[in-house]
Design a binder for these strands. Sequence first.
DNA 1: CTAGAAATTGACGACTTGTCAAAAGTGACG
DNA 2: CGTCACTTTTGACAAGTCGTCAATTTCTAG
Lengths: 244, 244
Amino acid sequence: MSTQLSPKQQEIRDRERAILKVAGSMLLSEGYHAFSMDRIAGELKYAKGTIYNHYPNKEEIILSLAVEAVRKRQEMFDRAALSRGSSRDRMQTIGVAFELYTRVYSDEFKIEQLIRNAAIWEKTSQKRRDLLMNWEQQCMGMVAGIVRDAVASGDLDSSESDNIPEMIFGFWALTYGSYVLHETSPSLAQLGITDVYRSIRVNSHRLLNGIPWNPIRKLHEDLSLFERKAHEVFPNELAQLTHF
Amino acid sequence: MSTQLSPKQQEIRDRERAILKVAGSMLLSEGYHAFSMDRIAGELKYAKGTIYNHYPNKEEIILSLAVEAVRKRQEMFDRAALSRGSSRDRMQTIGVAFELYTRVYSDEFKIEQLIRNAAIWEKTSQKRRDLLMNWEQQCMGMVAGIVRDAVASGDLDSSESDNIPEMIFGFWALTYGSYVLHETSPSLAQLGITDVYRSIRVNSHRLLNGIPWNPIRKLHEDLSLFERKAHEVFPNELAQLTHF
DNA sequence: CTAGAAATTGACGACTTGTCAAAAGTGACG
DNA sequence: CGTCACTTTTGACAAGTCGTCAATTTCTAG
């Protein structure tokens, strides 16, 4: 259809990206309270009305940023799901993807959490919500595929085939909950968690063994597999971390 | 010290409670966007300045509500931790306490989640934050005691004694993450989770077995223990639920 | 070049937050 | 009682935000 964009259309498209960029950095560097439509307009030297032409309110901008974030996450999950190895290996690699996503793209992950706030969610449009949910669904579909493979290959007991959503939910909740608590709970450090990433890996290992998901492994085996997969599947992301 | 309160002091104390009450119901019934200092003052027939005499900003009111919520949770955890049974039984009973808390006192739980938002947290005072963290720490201390008992009695391998915080973190993340996703993720229903509470119980069972935390149990054993403990320790909360 | 469509602008109304000087209320003591 | 220092309450106010929309400018197609 739109093979060619007029100069004006191009300008509008570019501006939309510029809005997201300036909004994202404003939100993350100065916090939610400093984030206002007036300031975005001021920074970009446009009138406020122009910004409102692109987005009907500021929550919609945040949701837009969240959609980009989830898309990035989905892309990493994709790479993990397509990696070589047993079903358990691939499931672990999803864990690698999630850890690296929260560490390397921590800004994006923070925005993902922001959007889960009722105060923000309430004011967004159904259309863009669907966009977000679509990518989120893809992520889950990815994981569901791995679980189905596991049942098919006998790594999971076939009586478990009805419980696939439940299992996905378990991993999702464990890892997501861990990262959220890590970002938001001031009590966590006082609990005595020194290496939160290691803790999450250990707990994932326990959950896998507890299902049970074959092959059952020793902790050290799962931990070294985790590192190997990180190097194998996500070398670029890994390079952006000073400590791993 | 203050054995007797003057009528005026009593009035101020009562008003503080009234503020929290009206703020809480306003927040929960009409959403965050409808929650304003002006409206609270209007509802209570006081001038805005009077409300500001009690709380320096609206975030502090929300944090105050959250402190009450966590205190209520702590009280339920307390009952769970003091219940009779093996270490694994008591750990499960903490799970019962948390589930009933999120179900029976869902308003309180929603406020707990609200406070974890950077936008709100940023504007609160250290003093009240410490209050919140103090109760939260008590909850965790409660759980830590159970884990220590488990190591002492041999239900957990003694080599695990260094990993107590990690284990608490695992359960906390799994359950907390589950409830948060349940409240906030529109994708969850589409994933195929029909009974979210059963799913959480099942995943907790898996994590316990995966640690491993003795005695290792079959799924149905853990599920029926769960129900038994609910009736035994939390009969009143249970009575407030139509379905369990 | 021009006329109609599209995009941009910024002043505006409605609302919020948080402050503070002035007004009202309280209570201890002669 | 009456008074006077002290505490509490009040609401007008400044500052800032959101979202709108009529007027204006810019684009574009013929």
